[in-house]
Amino acid sequence: MDARRDFDHDFEDATIGEDIEDLDGTGGGDDVAMINVDCGNNDDNFGDNDVLLMSALASGRDIIVINYCYPCLCCHYCLLQKYFVDKKSNKNCFVLFARELNICWNDNPQYWRWTTLKETSGEEIEVAELLQVCWLDVRGQFNGAVDLSPGIAYEIVFVVRMIKCQDFSLKLTIILPNSKKLTRNESLNEKPLGSWFDIQLGEFKMSPENVGTMEFSLEDHTELWKSGLIVKYAIIRPKEPE
Rank of each mutant, 00 (worst) to 15 (best):
A3M: 02
R4P: 00
D8N: 04
H9W: 08
D13Q: 05
D13R: 05
I16E: 14
D24R: 02
G27C: 09
G29T: 13
D31H: 12
D38V: 05
N41E: 14
G47K: 06
L52A: 01
L52W: 01
M54Q: 10
S55G: 10
A56Y: 09
G60D: 05
I64P: 01
N67C: 13
C72D: 09
C72K: 07
H76Y: 15
L80T: 09
K82Q: 15
N92T: 06
C93G: 11
C93R: 10
R99P: 12
E100S: 12
N108R: 15
N108Y: 12
Q110F: 12
Y111T: 03
R113C: 11
T115W: 06
T120M: 14
S121T: 14
E123Y: 14
E124T: 08
L131E: 11
Q132G: 06
C134A: 02
L136K: 00
S149G: 08
I152E: 11
E155K: 14
V159H: 11
V160K: 02
F168E: 07
I174M: 00
I174F: 01
S179G: 08
K181M: 07
L182V: 09
W196V: 05
D198N: 10
M206F: 05
V211A: 03
E219Q: 13
E223I: 11
V231H: 01
I235V: 13
R237P: 01
